[in-house]
Design a protein around this nucleic acid. Structure first.
Lengths: 226, 226
DNA sequence: GTCTATAGCCTGATAGAC
DNA sequence: GTCTATCAGGCTATAGAC
């Protein structure tokens, strides 16, 4: 990305960063254990031994990538908990943002068993993070309820939350199987978001339905952030 | 299973069958590419070379297992399409049955990319089967609509069907992550069924809700079929 | 026809020398 | 930062016993 801009000290993209970026891309495409360290090195354009210089083990690489997810997630959580705005649009904004985070780090959610297998040290951290994110969505649901956007019978909440997690995480697999799409692109994100939104749909108030339409009207395909 | 009953010729459990059974169990636990041929042989209690005698490649083994799924699925499809009964309970029965099939062969659904990677020949067959099962669920939904059990706005149907597929397939992964459960047992099936049922819940008529309660009241934990 | 023992071959992660 | 060696493990194959 920013090859020309150098703000402070080292805006220059370091080899380490390039490794992380390349690994993320490959992992997202095929899952960590269908990607070899050799391939990562080749993609970056460095030697395999050089990769070893930065990350002694594949586990270390996975750890570093997970820290990025933790960073994104906690930034998001802070933002949501600090929210005092009453603008209804804020929620659809959050939902899109949360969805983006999952998308960027999707291999972790999708191939979690494999990730844990090669990086056992990530067992608890992943669990904790998943819990935390679930709480945030729960909190958002409560705020939305207070804002008369949605009304979910209290008995249905746990199941709804679980389904939101499941669909947010695995819609892409469905898409690639059912539709034969193998290279997912930003416009497919819109499809996924629609799937998740449809879980809320039956519970939305009229006001909520309006907001939903607005959210779905905006497109990930136009986002530069991805 | 049937060790005592011998109907026709060879009800005796053959080595081949034992291989298939052991492989299915291991694959369901950890996914095909986290299970070695050596381990399968060890589990069966035979030599690795003997396994080779029956299945020259791992792909051949996966193909044989897939044929079993095809058998179960087509038997189910025939049963559903042939249905003329009007008893509302028939639908919850079908749903449980369909859910069981996915469960028994869950590694295929869960680790499909991995399966295809080691058995490229299964690409089209899996796709075809997935399509077929989706059509069946669609058909059931229509029958249920006609029976006044459910009323889904026509625009919501595709998203609902997709979500049913996604949740049916991946609820187990959620459970193992979120709750830290790693050995899923039949009683967990009840949890999964509840998740899937909750997708329909907002659209059910009063009659439909009653049927749902009855279905959820029965427990997989008591089923001997699993 | 069924099974065991054993070996070859290949891939991929790790490591140390340069 | 780079190259090459090592080492483990997985799939496939063969020879021959029962």
């Amino acid at each position: 990305m920013g090859a020309g801009d150098d703000g402070k000290k080292t805006t220059r993209v370091t080899t380490r960063d390039r490794i992380l970026e390349a690994a993320l891309g490959l992992f997202n495409d095929r899952g960590p254990d269908r990607v070899t360290t050799a391939e990562i090195a080749r993609t970056v354009g460095i030697n395999e031994g050089n990769l070893y210089y930065y990350f002694k083990t594949k586990e270390a690489l996975l750890q570093a990538l997970f820290e990025k997810l933790e960073g994104d997630a906690s930034a998001f959580m802070v933002k949501v908990s600090a929210n005092t705005a009453t603008d209804p649009g804020i929620y659809s904004d959050y939902m899109r943002r949360w969805f983006s985070i999952i998308w960027v780090h999707r291999y972790i959610f999708r191939d979690l068993p494999g990730v844990i297998a090669t990086a056992p040290s990530l067992r608890e951290p992943t669990r904790a993070l998943s819990m935390g994110m679930r709480l945030v969505v729960d909190g958002m649901l409560q705020q939305m309820t207070a804002a008369n956007l949605i009304d979910v019978p209290v008995d249905d909440v746990p199941q709804l939350l679980a389904n939101v997690w499941i669909v947010s995480t695995y819609w892409a697999v469905f898409l690639s199987l059912q539709e034969g799409i193998d290279d997912l692109r930003p416009e497919h994100l819109d499809w996924g978001l629609k799937q998740v939104a449809s879980l809320f749909k039956p519970y939305l108030s009229e006001l909520g339905k309006g907001e939903l339409q607005i959210m779905l009207g905006r497109s990930f395909a136009l986002d530069k952030a991805l």
